[in-house]
């Protein structure tokens, strides 16, 4: 069990709460809140992947610089699944109600 924390300087403020994914084996859940700073809080059952998480987040935020508080509960997702959930969160924000 590991707790990881990251911060970024991003520009596109998140305007509403978004929830994607599930805490199932091989998957993860993302709770995204509006905030003044970009902070990422990860709780994961797979230890030793800090470097990989940083790479995934770097790559995601370079393409989609969202500003907000990300709370992530991970249950062994591959980087591909992590990216899927992050981009789904990004799309959810762009949806017009």
């Amino acid at each position: 069990m590991e707790k990881l924390n990251f911060t970024y300087q991003n520009s596109e403020a998140v305007k509403k709460f978004v929830h994607v994914g599930v805490v199932a084996s091989g998957d993860l859940e993302i709770l995204l809140y509006p905030a003044d700073e970009t902070t990422i809080e990860i709780v994961t059952g797979s230890d030793g992947f800090k470097e990989v998480w940083k790479n995934v987040l770097d790559r995601f935020f370079t393409r989609y610089p969202l500003k907000g508080k990300f709370v992530i509960h991970d249950f062994g997702a591959t980087p591909g699944v992590v990216n899927l959930r992050l981009t789904q969160a990004m799309e959810a924000l762009n949806d017009e109600k």
């Binding site: 797979s46 591959t78 980087p79 591909g80």
Partner: peptide
């Protein structure tokens, strides 16, 4: 292909 296999 997915970028990572199921064994990560």
């Amino acid at each position: 292909v997915e970028t990572f296999g199921s064994n990560k």
